[in-house]
Simulated scan of single mutants.
Amino acid sequence: MKRLDALDAARFLAFCGMVLVNFRIAAEVAPGMDWASMLIGALEGRAAALFVVLAGIGIGLSRISASLLLRRAAFLFVIGLINMTVFDADILHFYALYFVVGAFFLAASQRGLWLGALGIMILAVIANLFFDYDQGWDWDTLVYTDLWTLPGFLRNALFNGWHPVLPWAAFLLIGMAIGRSKLHTLCIQHRLIMWGFGAAVLALFPQMMTSDTELVAYLGTESIPPGPFYVMAGTGTACIVIGLLLKLWPMIKRTGTAAFLTAPGRQSLTLYMAHILIGMGVLEELGLLGGTLSAPQIALYALLFCSLSSVFSLLWARKFKRGPLEALMRRATEYTRA
């Protein structure tokens, strides 16, 4: 199937949302009522969910083998562990675990993928009934106290980390199911927009039906803790963005801005690492971490970083087919015959 450029654009938008959220976390910016706080608050948990759904769509559209997917998982896991020494909220090592789950569903039908996603959400609900979600967390500092012990790492990765397998792997399977659809048709694009809007709206109601504080948190649409209605809301939002971009892509191409969206979308792995090592590194060197910036200031800095990332990616793409880390992953995981 011909590559759908709109999906690359969606990936870049997801990256921009993650940059806004992660820069706020790193800079320890207190939430407020200004435009930037509301924007970042709306993106928390949604941008990353879109990122994972898009990864699933990519797998669904491709003919990737289980062995290659597992090799990519191993590559991302190693890169993610290295990244975690700098930024605890790394998503790459979680991505690797989602890929392991996805490898078992490569031959599944669309129905099987949806049932698999449902099963993961049910397991997440059961896990919350039997285990303490707060274990390991110091919520005042957002530090996971026993992350680098085996029990703590496994608990964080599977149950109560920033993006745990239960239930975040459901996003990947949902994306794989969506990727099996005829995304280039208006019919599917309209369904994504309408069903996504319906799911995002319906997910808001359960939290309104109880006054119990803990129950409200779990029935809500926040990513921490990630309850079933968060997955529903995150999936709905992702479907809206993907559907709209697919539908509006011919119009976007006519504006001449398409390349500024697709080039960085195809280098999202490189840019993800860059926003931590370079973007956050600059903030640290300037002494701007630790709550010294306001939400609007960090938002403007994040948007500037995203703009520069787009320009860099466009210039890089004129000389090279893939981004630096994308090329390294391909070389490390794909075998070539002499």
Rank of each mutant, 00 (worst) to 15 (best):
A6Q: 05
F12K: 00
M18W: 08
V21L: 11
E28C: 13
M33R: 14
L39S: 15
G41I: 11
A42P: 04
A42T: 05
A42F: 10
A47W: 05
A49P: 08
F51I: 03
L54R: 13
G60T: 06
L68T: 12
L68V: 13
V78D: 02
L81S: 03
L81R: 00
A89C: 02
D90H: 01
D90I: 01
I91C: 05
Y95T: 13
A96I: 06
L97Y: 07
L97M: 15
F99N: 08
A103E: 13
A103L: 12
Q110W: 01
Q110Y: 00
G112Q: 03
G112I: 05
L113V: 02
G116Q: 05
G119P: 07
I120Q: 05
I120R: 09
I120L: 15
L123E: 11
A124E: 03
Y133P: 03
Q135M: 12
W137F: 15
T141P: 05
L147Q: 03
L147V: 00
F153C: 06
F153R: 06
N160L: 07
G161M: 08
W162M: 01
P167I: 01
A170W: 06
I174F: 12
L183A: 00
L192Y: 06
M194W: 08
A200I: 05
A200K: 03
A203P: 08
M208H: 03
L215D: 01
E222Y: 15
I224N: 15
P225Q: 14
G227A: 13
F229A: 13
F229R: 12
M232P: 10
G236C: 02
V241I: 13
L248Y: 09
R254C: 00
A259V: 06
L261T: 04
A263C: 10
G281M: 11
V282Q: 09
L283G: 09
E284M: 12
L288A: 12
L288T: 08
A295V: 04
A295W: 10
S309H: 08
F312V: 12
A327P: 02
L328G: 07
L328K: 02
R331I: 04
T336L: 14
R337H: 15
